[in-house]
Write a protein that binds this DNA or RNA. Structure first.
Length: 499
RNA sequence: GGGUGCAUAGCUCAGUCGGUAGAGCAACGGCCUUUUAAGCCGUGGGUCGCAGGUUCGAUCCCUGCUGCACUCACCA
């Protein structure tokens, strides 16, 4: 190369131009830089795990992305990375031939290559493929961030959050521990399926686009359905459809689905999130508490930890989960027994405590406000909170022990956050109609998140709905819990950012 | 939606009390057959997020905008 040409090779545009020229140079060598296939005999971790059986006897074929290159004239070391593991490869010019070594000289970090060779160790003891063949499988033409590492210490980590989320593929290439989170996410979902399938549940799919949104208290995303010439909503929950299936005669159903709530984004909330909901005929919320506890303990057992770090806490799964009434907890943390307190007196109490609560904040919301403010954050170890106010639980059965304002509902709290929500499902169509009507009144009084009347759902219930227990579990938070991630965006592959 | 902060080379970051910018890695040329943050010699790469304003002069000061992060409020 002349001195003039040597000046090329600086800005990104020039790097891109050089890589493009390399593609042509490789073609000029008679090699296709974007291959069609390569048959692998082992993954990198299989070679490391089975080193003793493979060493110096077996010819192996491996493939992956080139992550480091150390050239030393007529021989070079490099590491490739496949899905799980990095592995070193040693290329010698007189072993792979001059033509292939010429090819090697044209390679860049980020290229996908295959190698054929024998398994050895270097004198420093690192398991290494001593290559007989080099195959270029896909040429990199845009530089990837180069992260260096020594003794476990990482240098120049690719840690720009915006770029990591926008270009998640780069994040996954360069930060392998990110991949582990999503592998764990996949396992957690699989364990949920296994648990339910083993118990005879049927996995179903219900509409994402719904003419009436329901099953939760939230603001929806709205869209227009051209073929039906009608406004539709993206589901905020699948609850009402799953109950229709219970009415239809499915004994046990579940769905793992995205819900969409048109609300704020923060470290614990993403407008598009995944929930497991399951419904089971003839059981009540007491049964479900045992079952949900079993699910969480099964997960911890599968992970192999009975206690683990989450945020600044150590969560202990060895003990039975506590079960306490919401009013009992309120009495302890607020200092006043508010059970049976009339709405106006409750509002006075909230105002005394410095909350701004006008008439649009009804009885149930007042209690929820106190609970969220005084109690929620204190619930670190797993605990089932029971006995929710009826006013904020329009789909749950009234408590059977005569408390008219209370429903048979529980939420599981861990580390101050809600992880599951369940109830003995309301199956009295007269009561259901009244509850949804009173939600309508709340909406008219200014509660934007009050639930909507769904005539078709109430009609379905009129045909007869068996006693049923139903559970909802937020999958994203479950993954956060078991992977010790503080930000929901870090358990979602492609969190939405403004474009 | 409110508050705070950030935006400089492909990546990670310095820096300029206002005089158009540096390092390491990556890149390019050369040497090097067991290296591993390989090493050695050499090369040069930037609309300092965008748009205005102040100024003789702005990457720096001011205003607006955009994006992101953190945080408070609300929903899980």
């Amino acid at each position: 190369m002349s001195n003039e040409e040597q000046h090329i090779g600086k800005s990104l545009a020039e790097i891109l131009a050089i890589r493009k020229e390399k593609v042509q140079k490789i073609r000029d060598l008679g090699i296709e830089p974007f291959a069609y296939e390569f048959s692998k005999s082992h993954s990198c971790n299989e070679i490391i795990d089975h080193y003793e059986e493979l060493k110096e006897t077996v010819t192996v074929r491996i493939a992956g992305r080139l992550m480091t290159i150390r050239r030393m004239g007529k021989a070079s070391f490099c590491h490739i990375q496949d899905q799980k593991t990095k592995l070193q490869i040693y290329f010698q010019e007189n072993k792979i031939g001059n033509d292939n070594y010429e090819l090697f000289k044209l390679l860049d970090i980020g290229d996908i290559i295959g190698a054929v060779g024998t398994v050895t160790k270097t004198r420093t003891g690192e398991i290494t493929i001593f290559a007989d063949e080099l195959h270029l499988l896909s040429k990199n033409v845009r530089p990837i961030p180069v992260v260096k590492e020594k003794d476990g210490e990482v240098f120049d980590a690719f840690n720009n959050k915006e770029q990591r989320y926008r270009q998640r593929y780069l994040d996954l290439i360069v930060n392998p521990e990110v991949k582990d989170i999503f592998i764990m996410r996949s396992k957690i979902i699989q364990w949920c399926r296994d648990f339910l399938n083993e118990r005879g549940f049927v996995e179903v799919e219900t509409p994402t686009l719904q003419p009436i949104y329901g099953g939760a208290s939230a603001r929806p995303f709205k869209t227009f359905y051209n073929a039906l010439n009608q406004d539709f909503f993206l589901r905020i929950a699948d609850e009402l459809y799953l109950k229709r299936l219970i009415i239809g005669g499915f004994e046990k159903v579940y769905e793992i689905a995205k819900n969409f709530r048109n609300e704020g984004i923060d470290r614990n909330h993403n407008p598009e999130f995944t929930a497991l909901e399951y419904y089971q005929q003839y059981v009540d919320y007491n049964f479900l508490m045992d079952e949900v506890e079993a699910i969480f303990k099964m997960m911890a057992e599968n992970i192999g930890k009975s206690s683990f770090a989450f945020a600044e806490f150590t969560i202990d799964f060895t003990q039975p989960f506590q079960r306490r009434s919401m009013f009992d907890l309120l009495k302890e943390y607020v200092g006043t027994d508010i059970y049976g307190m009339p709405e106006e007196q409750l509002r006075e109490l909230c105002i005394e405590r410095g909350f701004e609560v006008d008439k649009s904040v009804g009885y149930g919301k007042l209690i929820e406000l106190l609970f969220d403010h005084y109690v929620e954050g204190k619930l670190i170890q797993p605990i089932f909170v029971t006995d929710y106010p009826k006013a904020i639980s329009p789909l749950a059965k009234t408590s059977r022990d005569g408390k008219e304002d209370i429903v048979e509902r529980f939420e599981l709290y861990i580390a101050g956050q809600e992880f599951a929500n369940a109830f003995s499902e309301l199956n009295d169509p007269f009561d259901q109609r009244e509850r949804l009507e009173s939600q309508n009144h709340l909406r008219e009084a200014g509660d934007e998140e009050a639930q909507t009347m769904d005539e078709d759902f109430v009609m379905a219930m009129e045909y007869g709905m068996p006693p049923t227990g139903g559970v909802g579990i937020g999958i994203d938070r479950l993954v956060m819990l078991f992977t010790n991630q503080r930000y929901i965006k870090d358990v979602i592959l492609f969190p939405q950012l403004r474009s």
